[in-house]
């Protein structure tokens, strides 16, 4: 962050100088600034910066059951985490989930957006239907899918019975439970991702496709060699927000699998929550929270860097 702002000083100064000449500045700007920006700064300080430092601080201590620090242990909490098979498996599970969700969300989102960008009569109906999951909240998604996965009366069970296939117990088997969570997450995000991709595909200049049509290039080839490169900024944007969102996933896990079976879906945020509020181990939970922060900060930073480049373009 610092390094880049140093290299960008010159163009930014220029912009500021331009603004100064545009907008007449009054002497009491300082007074206004504290009124306008003060409340937000105070709130972010109290509910974002202070807790962040406090969490970092707690993670370097041992704590009692009230969350008070007792003994300074340095990085010991982190060392314990990294060497605990439980935590490593949790990180692994989180990673599988993040990769699965990101891959399928993008693949499905692109497929739907590409189909719905065709100029066909009645296409508007499909656009509306495909975006419908945008209105679905965590708990509703969880309930709809819990019923579909229900081992005795669920839709999947019924379907497999009708086709005379062996029934799958979705939530009792570790691999299947992970699939269940991934499917539900992808379904929930699909409406939003579809709309963003559709907007991006529609803004690709049609002349590019017309030229390709004249050359007799197949639609398939056009998609991979015109559409994808042209929408790559959007692709990047959706990838990073999906990765960030999946690392922070909590609600669906709490409602569908509760981290089980046998910790197969016990992901990072669920662990932070359980270790602090049920296990009473605030130090361990804080160390996990700091690890989450580092991961999220890294991906958000990537996104900022990319946006900055785009803005400068």
């Amino acid at each position: 962050m610092l390094k880049t702002s140093a290299t960008d000083v010159i163009p930014e100064k220029k912009v500021e100088a331009k603004q100064k000449s545009k907008f007449k500045l009054t002497a009491n700007d300082k007074y206004y600034a504290s009124i306008f920006a003060g409340p937000s700064l105070f709130l972010l300080g109290l509910f974002v910066f202070y807790p962040m430092f406090r969490t970092l601080y707690i993670s370097l201590f041992l704590t009692n059951t009230f969350g008070n620090t007792t003994l300074f242990v340095g990085l010991e909490n982190y060392v314990k985490l990294i060497s605990s098979p439980d935590f490593v498996s949790s990180m692994w599970v989180t990673l599988v989930y993040v990769v699965g969700v990101t891959f399928f969300t993008i693949a499905m989102g692109l497929l739907l957006a590409n189909l719905a960008s065709q100029k066909l009569p009645g296409i508007a109906i499909f656009r509306t239907l495909y975006s419908v999951t945008m209105g679905v909240s965590v708990s509703v998604a969880a309930i709809f899918w819990l019923f579909i996965f229900n081992p005795s009366a669920g839709f999947f069970t019924l379907l497999t019975k009708m086709l005379n296939l062996p029934t799958i117990n979705w939530l009792a088997n570790p691999t299947n439970a992970m699939w269940a969570i991934i499917i539900t997450t992808v379904w929930m995000h699909l409406g939003f991702v579809f709309l963003v991709f559709l907007g991006a595909i529609e803004s690709v200049p049609t002349t590019l496709y017309e030229a390709a049509d004249v050359e007799g290039v197949s639609k398939h080839y056009q998609f991979f060699h015109i559409t994808l490169p042209m929408i790559s900024p959007t692709l990047f944007f959706i990838s990073t927000i999906t990765i960030i969102g999946s690392f922070k996933s909590f609600g669906l896990i709490d409602l569908i699998t509760k981290g089980g079976p046998t910790n197969a879906t016990n992901m990072l945020v669920y662990r932070i929550y359980n270790d602090a509020f049920f296990g009473g181990n605030y130090a361990k939970s804080s160390a996990e929270a700091i690890i989450l922060t580092v991961i999220i900060a890294f991906f958000t930073y990537l996104q900022f860097k990319f946006l900055e480049k785009k803005v400068n373009y």
Partner: peptide
Amino acid sequence: FALFMITMMLPSEAAIIPNFQT
């Protein structure tokens, strides 16, 4: 402004313990 931008990088999920206490 940099502070605001940094804030966007910090997940609220990681701040639940101190915020609960506050």
